[in-house]
Write a protein that binds this DNA or RNA. Sequence first.
DNA 1: CTTTGCATTAACCAAATGGTTAAACATTTC
DNA 2: GAAATGTTTAACCATTTGGTTAATGCAAAG
Lengths: 202, 202
Amino acid sequence: MQTTNTTEQQIIEAARKIFMQRGLSGARMQDIADEAGINKAMLHYYYRSKEKLFEIVFGEAVQMLLGRVNAIFAGDMPWKEKIVAAVDNYITSISENPYLPLFVLHEINQNPDRMVQQFLHGPLFPNLRAFMLELAMEAEKGNIRKVDPLQLMISIISMCVFPFAAKPLLTGVFQMDPARFKTFIEERKKFVSSFVLHALEP
Amino acid sequence: MQTTNTTEQQIIEAARKIFMQRGLSGARMQDIADEAGINKAMLHYYYRSKEKLFEIVFGEAVQMLLGRVNAIFAGDMPWKEKIVAAVDNYITSISENPYLPLFVLHEINQNPDRMVQQFLHGPLFPNLRAFMLELAMEAEKGNIRKVDPLQLMISIISMCVFPFAAKPLLTGVFQMDPARFKTFIEERKKFVSSFVLHALEP
DNA sequence: CTTTGCATTAACCAAATGGTTAAACATTTC
DNA sequence: GAAATGTTTAACCATTTGGTTAATGCAAAG
């Protein structure tokens, strides 16, 4: 990745930073311009309106958050390894974008219709669905305890995502400093996958 | 609870509704006034400023979300029953306030310092801490698998809270209608507690 | 009845905010 | 090198928004 970006890219990066931190209604066009080191009029020159700019940032964010979860289940590993890899991979990728989950969650709540747009683009997580089917079959064969795959799936995602969405709350309640939180997240990778695998034992 | 409230109460209720849905920066004083069926000036007459009004609503919300989790672990039941009761209780209480988790999470992220204020009031979840200690002791005795109590605690909370924070996303991705979501939540009570208990088996 | 003190409102205000414009500046084209 | 095209800026504009004010309504106290 180049450090010298075009103005357009600089704007998107600045917009991403501001929107992610403050949300659509909390973000100020002036702040985005300042962050990008340019004049406010430039934002409108390249991206017409705040709404348009937001849609781009939001769309990319949804892709990052949801696209990845599907991709993780793409391989043809055994299901146990798939769970371990998925958890590890997902927590790692969110670590690099800690604001992402809450940003997406909050904005979807503000305007659920925006999601509809997003889902028209691609198919609905074929890998994830295939994986859930695989789990159901393993349960049938008696290799794992019989659980609702949807409940399981959402539990896994919950355990990976929630700590980031609740970071300031957790560090506050349990008095973790930033370093402690980092090790907590690192340890969490192992914890979640082993927790899930144990829970699935017949 | 009376249906005929004082103006002050009407304002708080209206503010709660608007703030919870739109957040601090997204809420408009005019909308709160309309919701309460009164003049905008009344808001300032009773609560000086938007910020002051928000702090009241936010404080109550934190209390609802965090205060309860501590209270649930108060009794002297065996730890297994405590987990079952806590999960059931917590999911039920959030069902009645589905906007609550995301609202609190989002606003804490916007301004983490606000939390500090909240924690100065009471002690830091003595029951929750006691329960975590109890789990550690059970692990020592070999009655449950040895796990980090903090990781476990946060996992339980994650699994209870996240589905509500992500409701529109989940209903979108997994194409649930409102009724389906309701049964999903109802089933979740049993799923989560049994999932956790299985995961804790030595 | 009138005075007093609180409750309520319409009209108003200043600052913030998303967006526009016309001119200056830079780069490419011929 | 001048015309044309694209980029950037300062100044400006209209609307929104949190907040104020002065006048009105109104119930209780005297």
